[in-house]
Design a protein around this nucleic acid. Structure first.
Lengths: 240, 240
DNA sequence: CATACCCACATTGTTGACAATTTTGCCTAT
DNA sequence: ATAGGCAAAATTGTCAACAATGTGGGTATG
């Protein structure tokens, strides 16, 4: 447990190192930053249980940090929506509820639909090449796993992540990639939603990228919204 | 300047006291809370200039608070998107750019459109009555000011605020009301965008509410998106 | 004269201690 | 036996001092 800080080498604000083109200069990071990222991962992956209470003195001892630095990390987790703090009472990890999950889908439908529309309007050669390469990569993985009943969640995540990046709208990118997607991953990890929509999802991804390539914003948005709504419907059925 | 703390009586998370039905129990608030709300108002209204650097020692002296409490307020402002902090360098108020304003419109179009759709599906009698009352109130004000070239921005704000509340989606409500709307108000205050679309905006508001009353989510979303897009177009034309 | 280096200053990050509030457990009275 | 209240313990909010980092100016050198 001691020396855990040396292991935290994720890039600051991006969701997944595999998405970063290249790390040119290791940006200096603060202790509160590392605490934040470590705790974020533990909450997302369920090592710190949803709904559990956070004890500042306990965590400070565990990480051998002062309470001040830890509090900064907690406040940033609150801003992410992973913690809820009440004055003079303390912080709790958010609960995972069916309602919360469905709310997340509705917000994603709206925002990622818009991201598709914008990506279709502002697409660059690099973005398109990147999307194509990613899709082929997923197709290969898909063939390898043909017949299996689950769909690699990371592939789906890559797809949505890249589309949003291609929108070119920094506010939209920040809202989705630095805020909502951590909650999405938290639900995926802990409710373990392996989607049996593998081939279908892949075809949908493919059609969305085609619409973006064609510069058809209306169609791109429509297809993405249907894609997300189908996912939501799938989950909704499973929960009943 | 001394004793300013006693004057901060806004309710914690809501945007505007007039939106709160009744304040049943004055929730206890912390010093960092009051600093946060005070600074938030000063940034939104431009008393602290956009793009200016924030000096922790200076502000701490000015408010007669410790740097620790002030830093907590600054971090919350960063989470709101009103400040940008760089490690070991400090915080700056965000710049107001044309691009940022247009990005805000696109995100609002997506989210408020969804809010309308949801409001049409989950509408309650209270929500509808509230919306109707607000609309009549605005109509009266509108007649009083007939002929004037500007539209009271607060009326427009009330409208969007109430619609979002009626959506019933807590994540959507939080994202818009506790995050994006402060940036919207910042642009309105400082770029002073008095819209000459008074009567037109009022009619659009009216039609949106009718669609929600009818439970027509598709139409409600469509109308809201056109409403916001028209606003965006109006601004875009004015900027050129 | 321009550039590069170095040092003093100011600002930010971090820590441990103090104050205020909440929670908990025990004791008492009905 | 249970409800109420009081006191002790634990937790959170706040503060001031210390350490680490970035900034700017001055000087020496090409």
């Amino acid at each position: 447990m001691v020396g855990f800080l040396l292991d935290c080498r994720q890039s600051g604000s991006s969701l997944n190192d595999s998405h970063v083109k290249a790390a040119p200069s290791e940006a200096p990071r603060t202790l509160a930053d590392r605490l934040f990222e470590t705790l974020r991962a533990e909450i997302v992956e369920g090592r710190i249980a949803a709904g559990s209470k956070i004890s500042e003195p306990e965590l400070a001892r565990r990480f051998e940090a002062s309470r001040g630095s830890l509090r900064e990390a907690l406040m940033r987790l609150e801003a992410l929506g992973l913690l809820e703090r009440r004055i003079n009472v303390g912080a709790r990890v958010v609960e995972l509820t069916e309602r919360g999950l469905l709310e997340l889908y509705d917000v994603r439908e709206a925002l990622e639909g818009m991201a598709c529309r914008l990506a279709a309007g502002a697409r660059t050669a690099e973005d398109l090449a990147e999307l194509r390469r990613m899709l082929e990569h997923h197709e290969q993985q898909e063939e390898l796993r043909a017949g299996r009943a689950y769909f690699q969640p990371e592939g789906d995540f890559d797809f949505h992540f890249r589309i949003v990046q291609a929108s070119g709208n920094d506010l939209l990118i920040d809202t989705l990639c630095n805020r909502l997607y951590y909650r999405v991953r938290m639900y995926r990890y802990q409710l373990g939603m392996a989607s049996p929509r593998a081939q279908r999802a892949f075809r949908e991804h493919s059609h969305i990228i085609e619409a973006i390539e064609a510069g058809d914003g209306d169609l791109a948005e429509l297809l993405m919204r249907r894609h997300i709504r189908a996912s939501r419907q799938n989950i909704e059925n499973k929960l009943r």
